[in-house]
Each structure stands twice: as C-alpha cells, then as structure tokens.
C-alpha cells in the first residue's frame, strides 16, 4: 500500500494536479469510480486490483482494440507475471484478446503480439472478433435456410408467373 501512495504522490509531483486528474480520466479511473457507485462492484473491484497490479510493471504492448499487456518479472508470484488490462472496462471477457496476443499472454510464446502481427497473412487473415454468445439474438448464428435468419435464402427454384394488367 505504501508503494501505491508513493507512486500517486510522485506522479502528482511530476504532472501537477491538473495533469494527474487528466491522467486519471484517460486511464478510466474516474469512470470506474462512477461505476463503483453504481454498484457494478465485482468488475470494478477486479479493475482496481488490476490497476494496483500494474504498478511497477512493464507495458509490453497495446493491441488494436486498446487492450494493454503488462509483464512484471520481479517480486511476483510465478505464473502471474503476464496479464492484460482490457480496454472494455465493464463487459470484458477473454475472447477480446486477439489471436496474435493470445500466445504471449498464455506463455505459449515469448514473441509479443506486435511481432506476431507481422506474420499475419494479408490476403486471408481474418479480423479478430470477440465471442458474442449470450449478448443477444442478433448475434446467434443461423444457417442460411433457418427461419430465424433474417437473410434466409430463398429456396424457390422456379419463377412464378406474375399477372400484368394486359399483355
């Protein structure tokens, strides 16, 4: 806790009060405080924990969704030395981590996502999409013949005669 206070004091010294406030705002602390009062307790608590965890850690990279990847090698429990701070503050989940960062985050590789992004095939490499299960009916996949598919394919294989008024 002393380190937290120390780092706050040092950054106020460094940036001045206005600068510190802006920093807080940019980093989303104020939002989270607000959320805190709106009783989204769980996620904001985890968020505060992450923020505290971040102190003294090295920012390894930021992906194109704004997720930040941290690493801290000293004074930390083994296996907890890489983590992500999600750009999405309230509705985050693990599927928001794109493929190129997945390997780094899960200790599959030591190459960072920025390095792996260079290997992504241009022609057919698909954009990462988060898993939207449970987020609403519009995100559920329906096959092309499914009645709930709004773009349901027309399986009629003939063209009906349309009556014109006169030939």
């Amino acid at each position: 806790m002393t380190t937290v206070v120390k780092s706050i004091v040092s950054s106020i010294k460094e940036k001045g009060f206005g600068g510190f406030f802006r920093y807080l705002k940019d980093e989303g602390y104020l939002f989270v405080v607000e959320m805190h009062y709106k009783a989204v307790i769980y996620s904001s608590t985890v968020y505060w924990q992450t923020k505290i965890h971040n102190i003294g850690a090295r920012l390894v990279g930021v992906d194109k969704f704004g997720n930040k990847y941290y690493e801290k090698l000293e004074n930390i429990q083994h296996g907890r030395h890489r983590w992500v701070e999600y750009a999405e503050k309230s509705r985050y989940n693990a599927s928001q981590v794109p493929a190129e960062w997945h390997g780094w985050l899960h200790h599959i590789t030591d190459h960072t996502g920025d390095e792996l992004l260079l290997l992504k095939p241009k022609r057919y490499g698909a954009e990462h999409k988060e898993n939207l299960s449970g987020e609403g009916d519009q995100y559920i996949y329906h096959s092309k013949g499914h009645a709930l598919n709004p773009g349901q394919r027309n399986w009629t294989r003939y063209q009906p005669w349309e009556s014109k008024a006169e030939p």
Partner: peptide, 19 residues
C-alpha cells in the same frame, strides 16, 4: 422453361382486370 413463368396458385380475375 420449366422453371420460368410457372402458374403456382389458383387465381381469379377481379373486375378491375387483376388476378
């Protein structure tokens, strides 16, 4: 030709000439 211009429903001509 078997797939085009097919009659698929019974139709009656209205007094205004429409089916």
């Amino acid at each position: 030709g078997l797939k085009r211009q097919r009659l698929n429903d019974p139709m009656i001509r209205d007094p205004d000439g429409r089916f």
